[in-house]
Write a protein that binds this DNA or RNA. Structure first.
Lengths: 211, 211
DNA sequence: AACCGGTTTCGAACGGCATTCGAAATCCGT
DNA sequence: ACGGATTTCGAATGCCGTTCGAAACCGGTT
């Protein structure tokens, strides 16, 4: 009962993910549309997930897992390349922000799910625990701390965490407030080229970790 | 007809602003609740503003004007203090991010209006022009460019604009993703003290503008 | 005072939404 | 082939924002 390993539960998640990617606005996502695309009825959503919110949360968690895996894989690669020396700072920063940048520019990726999800968390009751649990999950970011500490040993854990958080803020601004970024930079940066964007981000984040 | 200088139109805006501040989630804001608080009926919203969206946009614009005025006043003060020398970098950064930080920590301020508004812009049709117009209005940020250019003359306009944008991203992260910030910094920074937070932000933003 | 066109307010609709719930249908171990 | 548990369905519920025609209100003119 209420299992999400069920076949139609899977189809509902896939349909929800697909609709979240296509939809330019969140109001385009309705229980009826999800149900139709999954060849089911709206009540199936309530039955398998409890509510539409929780279905979206389940989908977002799945996408987050994929993104985080990519991040951690890049971090490991950066660490291995220089071991036993500390990894290259630019490479670590690129591992942190690169996957998000690349996903946000790749029209076939599921990045819209994540941006829609975070704004959805503010639309609905914040007391809903399943939302905060996913958003506040920063364990994968914690993995960056020891490596950055080896690069900048004069910073303590709080300093590192603070700078990590700031780097994430910069990334969010670029991926989520694209038009603002365009205007402020006079449309002179090719924001469609992930490599250029990542290089620009390294340019401002790296100094935070230097003396 | 359809005037927003009307008395009940004013009361609707005040009620909407108040509800947006009290509401912990956006779904708590309904046309009927706004109407009741303003001693009017839901149809009055459509009549005076066209739709609930546009009412919220009008309220957000009003609040933005107040915040921007405070920012620009601080910038002018920083410039005047050192004139004709270039202003102090730390002071300029504090003028940029300080008002947002202080508002977000002041329970009597209308800051929630702004954070709710930006996530609302993503919930509704992005093609709605009155939303983008407000969010993408970065003229007041442009005022910072010439001052920062005097401080860091080796950076061109694009570099300055990019760094400005990054600074805004850091500010958003701190004001809007508080719980993430708390966890990443091990709860070791007093995020309720605006002076401490602003100093921490200056600490990471200032190096972007140094050689 | 009575009138009147323009402006504002109101209340009863309308369609759409997520969700609930009891009944039907399906599945699977016996 | 049966029977209990699981899953699907469809009608009903209560909210939502918005629309619309009628009522109320207003200030200036007879």
């Amino acid at each position: 009962m209420h299992g999400r390993t069920n076949l139609t539960a899977m189809r509902l998640m896939d349909a929800c993910e697909h609709l979240l990617c296509e939809a330019e606005a969140l109001e385009d996502l309705t229980a009826r549309r999800i149900a139709i695309e999954a060849h089911a009825t709206p009540s199936a959503i309530s039955y398998h997930f409890g509510s539409q919110e929780e279905l979206v949360a389940a989908v977002a968690e799945r996408v987050y897992r994929r993104l985080n895996a990519e991040r951690l894989s890049l971090l490991r690669k950066a660490a291995d390349r220089r071991a036993p020396e500390p990894p290259d700072l630019d490479e670590v920063i690129a591992a942190l922000v690169g996957p998000s940048i690349r996903w946000s520019l790749d029209p076939t990726s599921s990045y819209p799910v994540l941006s829609h999800f975070t704004s959805m968390a503010k639309t609905h009751r914040e007391r809903a625990p399943h939302y905060r649990r996913i958003i506040d999950n920063v364990e994968h970011h914690r993995a960056f701390v020891p490596h950055l500490k080896r690069i900048a040993p004069w910073l303590d854990d709080v300093d590192i965490g603070w700078r990590l958080n700031c780097a994430l803020g910069i990334r969010s601004q670029v991926t989520r407030s694209r038009s603002r970024t365009e205007v402020l930079t006079n449309y002179s940066i090719d924001l469609d080229d992930p490599d250029i964007v990542i290089a620009r981000m390294v340019e401002v984040i790296a100094p935070m970790f230097r003396r």
